Amino acid sequence: MTSPASAPTPLPDDDPARELLVAEPESPDVAHIALAGNIYSILVTGRQTAGRYCLIDMQVPAGGGPPPHRHDFEEMFTLLEGEIDFIFRGETRRVAAGSTVNIPANAPHHFRNNSGRPARMLCMCTPAGQEEYFALCGDPVDSPNSPPPHLSDEQQDQRRRTAADLAPRFATELLPADGK
């Protein structure tokens, strides 16, 4: 990409193989994944955007949220409903519906729904790939309103091991509980 002051470069030709995409959370084509106590609906995949980004609709129940982590890609959240505490480099900031949060690549972070009510947000990752990681680590469910499956302690430990084992493949590092 060029800055406004640099000489313009011609745009590439349109790719007619790429089509308009309308993503609807209840569509049978949308995968719904239970992960870390949340339900993630993969609205737009990297396959659909030539790897440029993915878009995930996140249902986050009270108490939900992932463990501390960091990754080598940008992540942006737009809160649609409720409130979420974002913990960014160890500092907590409560964010309400209507706000957008951008997490820079490689910064330690996580989020937690401490509001006592469900929350919903859209998450865009650029470039894409996070949706593939979620699909490999989580459990498929039927809809965005499905309850997460009840997992035994052994099953939960297995999901954590899978997430840790796959993290490097997806430019992700899981961090200790203190987030450092």
Results as ranks from 00 to 15, higher is better:
E26H: 13
E26M: 13
S27E: 10
S27G: 09
P28Q: 07
P28W: 12
D29L: 14
D29A: 15
D29T: 15
V30I: 15
V30P: 02
V30D: 07
V30C: 08
A31D: 14
A31E: 15
A31P: 01
A31W: 05
H32Q: 11
I33R: 11
A34E: 07
A34C: 12
A34N: 13
A34H: 05
A34K: 07
A34W: 03
L35I: 12
A36C: 11
A36I: 00
N38T: 11
N38W: 00
I39P: 13
I39S: 13
I39V: 15
I39H: 08
Y40P: 00
Y40N: 13
S41G: 13
S41Q: 07
S41I: 08
S41H: 10
I42D: 11
I42C: 13
L43R: 06
L43D: 09
L43W: 11
V44A: 03
V44E: 02
T45H: 07
T45L: 13
T45M: 09
T45N: 03
G46V: 09
G46M: 07
G46K: 02
G46H: 06
G46D: 10
R47K: 15
R47H: 13
Q48E: 15
Q48A: 09
T49N: 08
T49E: 07
T49V: 08
A50D: 14
A50M: 01
G51C: 11
G51S: 11
G51Q: 10
R52L: 12
R52W: 00
Y53K: 00
Y53V: 11
Y53G: 05
Y53L: 15
C54R: 00
C54N: 12
C54L: 03
C54K: 01
L55P: 03
L55Y: 00
L55S: 10
L55W: 00
L55N: 04
I56V: 15
I56W: 02
I56S: 04
I56M: 12
D57S: 05
M58F: 04
Q59E: 14
Q59A: 11
Q59R: 15
V60H: 01
V60Q: 05
V60C: 09
V60K: 01
P61W: 00
P61E: 01
P61G: 03
P61A: 00
P61C: 01
P61D: 00
A62Y: 03
A62N: 09
A62W: 04
A62R: 07
G63F: 02
G63S: 04
G64H: 06
G64C: 10
G64L: 10
G65C: 07
G65F: 11
P66Y: 01
P66T: 05
P66S: 06
P67G: 09
P67N: 03
P67I: 02
P68E: 07
P68Q: 06
P68H: 05
P68W: 10
H69E: 07
H69P: 08
H69R: 12
R70H: 15
H71Y: 06
H71W: 06
H71I: 05
H71A: 04
D72G: 14
D72I: 00
D72N: 14
D72V: 02
F73N: 05
E74W: 04
E74H: 08
E75K: 03
E75T: 04
M76C: 15
M76I: 15
F77W: 03
F77N: 01
F77H: 04
T78F: 14
